[in-house]
């Protein structure tokens, strides 16, 4: 089967602290149809990985390559990477004052697909997906994420995931700071998105979000390297015993 994402020996430093190496030779392969989970203690490089895949200006790749559907993407700009079919749900989604949610959704759909969405169909889609995520449709008239609660912001990320329907979804700590109900809605959203052709990479430090999901691989990331890969039972083990065993 063709590899969807392949990361080879990835090494990165922080833009504002070039002496600090964060990822120290990371390897990861994701096939279509798979759900991967990356767990690790704070500061292990989890979010750096997500941001580096998206070519964030905050990180610099010093070695290694990232391939998406067979094409090297390290040197592409963030918008081009998004257009290839990768989506990231942000740990802290941005607020955009003066721009309504409706306007934002139309703009991003247009940017990703390269064509103006059919307004009638798109509005129907938005309405339907919002209902499934327990969001009030009136929210589309509110300014993008301005005054949204933490839970509303994360649901908004999942809403965009469903509307943009990428080939690979990276969820960076989407479950952090959410209550049980919100976590359930987020995992319902992932479930709605998931099919045989696409893939999900979940970055988390908790196992709550994994309860209702069929997980293919769990990776333990410690000090910039994947130190152990296993199936969903590995997540259970971490929940009980923590990362002690894998830390130096």
């Amino acid at each position: 089967m063709k590899k969807l994402l392949e990361i080879k020996n990835l090494k990165t430093i922080a833009e504002d602290d070039p002496n600090k190496q964060i990822l120290k030779g990371l390897n990861l392969t994701i096939q279509p149809g798979e759900v991967h989970v990356i767990m690790g203690p704070n500061g292990s490089g989890k979010s750096t990985l997500a941001n580096t895949i998206f070519h964030s200006p905050r990180y610099i790749v010093t070695d290694g390559d990232i391939f998406f559907a067979g094409e090297k993407i390290n040197d592409l700009s963030t918008d081009k990477i998004a257009k290839k079919g990768i989506f990231m749900s942000f740990q802290t989604p941005e607020e955009i004052p003066g721009v309504s949610l409706a306007q934002f959704l139309k703009t991003t759909k247009h940017s990703i697909t390269g064509e103006k969405p059919n307004l009638y169909q798109f509005t129907k889609d938005v309405e339907e997906k919002m209902k499934e995520l327990g969001m009030s449709y009136d929210t589309v008239n509110r300014e993008f994420n301005v005054g949204f609660s933490g839970g509303e912001k994360k649901k908004n990320e999942i809403l965009q995931l469903l509307l943009l329907n990428p080939k690979l979804a990276i969820l960076d700590e989407t479950d952090s700071g959410l209550d049980v109900d919100a976590i359930q809605i987020v995992s319902k959203g992932i479930d709605l998105y998931k099919n045989e052709e696409n893939a999900v990479l979940i970055i988390t430090h908790s196992t709550k979000i994994l309860k209702n999901l069929k997980v293919d691989q769990v990776h333990i990331l410690v000090d910039g390297k994947i130190v152990k890969t296993g199936d969903s039972s590995l997540a259970k083990e971490i929940e009980e015993n923590g990362y002690q065993k894998y830390s130096k």
Binding site: D79, K83, P93, T108, S111
Partner: peptide
């Protein structure tokens, strides 16, 4: 960066903001 991750070019992102 957030807006670019949603497919907008740097110029489009600045324009929206």
């Amino acid at each position: 960066f957030y807006l670019m991750s949603r497919g907008m070019t740097e110029e489009e992102a600045k324009g929206l903001i």
